[in-house]
């Protein structure tokens, strides 16, 4: 079995980070003064993380015991096979853009995960996927993901590393290259999955002009309207992070989606409770001329639990 090329990079990145961590911890231990070790003001955030981690572990365990959750249909993900099938029939490539940020951005990691799923289908359909990247590390990660997907699809010969290239770290130089390549090669399906900024609309409008099926996913809320306006399907926010688990269909990963939903339910409950208590406190204060401390305290407590630092009962 050929050795995945990017592994040595992952090892190097992680080793470098660990060495830095050890050095920093040793230096910091000498400088610790009277301040408490734990940052009390971040307790609500830690509580949230522990709760979500606990819910994740619980739902993964539940899924493994044969109770996988039912996931609602996500149109954008249902269309992935259709888009790749169209590209195969037309004899044109599939274009996948994993954003313009590096591997330290969680959106890029989610994009590369999604690339693995897309590349597997591409290999099964005997199509071609082009992945221009704007960071060298992303190129290595993308190559590794595509190679592993081709192997998983039983088509190791389908892996073409020359189709996964580094273009430029410069935002608009990368945009110009991708726009030119789209106009010349006319990919039949375009995937934009990752972190995007001003270039999002340039990509999406160029793709629209060449008649490609376009599926986008990003967590940059300022770019979502552009993708929604110009693409056929858009994964909005959390859907983008759920995409990999959704497409895999594996019980473990689907269990984590249920934990995500449980977190959302908790947030919604707290938002409603906070709004009701804050409103009641205001209304009653207006009516009687005095604030109602119990409600004000409840509202402030909920705000603190949500992580608002400046919340107080005053």
């Amino acid at each position: 079995m050929p050795r995945p090329r990017g592994c040595r990079w992952w090892t190097a990145v992680a080793l470098g980070a660990l060495l830095g961590a050890a050095r920093s911890a040793m230096a910091a231990s000498d400088a610790v003064d009277a301040e408490p070790v734990f940052m009390q003001e971040r307790l609500p955030l830690l509580t949230w993380i522990v709760c979500i981690a606990g819910a994740t572990a619980f739902f993964v365990w539940r899924s493994r015991r044969g109770k996988p959750p039912t996931i609602r249909r996500i149109a954008a993900l249902e269309a992935v096979d259709e888009a790749i099938g169209r590209a195969t029939e037309m004899g044109r490539p599939v274009l996948f853009i994993p954003g313009i940020q590096d591997m330290d951005n969680i959106q890029t990691v989610a994009g590369i995960t999604m690339l693995g799923r897309v590349a597997r289908t591409v290999a099964e359909y005997d199509a071609v996927v082009e992945v221009p990247t704007s960071r060298s590390l992303v190129m290595e990660a993308a190559r590794e993901a595509v190679q592993a997907s081709c192997l998983a699809a039983g088509r190791p010969d389908a892996y073409q590393p020359d189709r996964i290239n580094y273009i430029s770290d410069e935002q608009f130089a990368y945009t110009a290259w991708v726009g030119g390549a789209m106009t010349r090669e006319k990919p039949a399906a375009c995937f934009y999955m990752g972190c995007f900024f001003a270039e999002s609309l340039i990509f999406a409008e160029t793709g629209n002009a060449i008649g490609a099926i376009q599926i986008a996913g990003t967590a940059e809320s300022s770019q979502l309207p552009f993708f929604v306006a110009a693409c056929d399907y858009t994964l909005i926010g959390e859907e983008f992070f759920a995409a990999s688990a959704y497409l895999s269909g594996e019980p473990d990963l689907l269990g984590t989606l249920q934990a995500q939903d449980a977190g959302k339910l908790a947030v919604m409950t707290m938002v409603v409770a906070g709004a009701v208590t804050a409103t009641l406190a205001l209304v009653l204060a207006w009516k009687d001329g005095e604030p109602w401390p119990v409600l004000q305290d409840a509202s402030a407590l909920l705000q603190r639990a949500m992580g608002f630092q400046g919340a107080s009962s005053d």
């Binding site: 995945p4 990017g6 995960t113 693995g116 993901a145 190679q147 592993a148």
Partner: peptide, 11 residues
């Protein structure tokens, strides 16, 4: 739980 970021699918 998810190791697909290292290449390949799922775990």
């Amino acid at each position: 739980v998810d190791r697909s970021w290292m290449g390949g699918g799922g775990r």
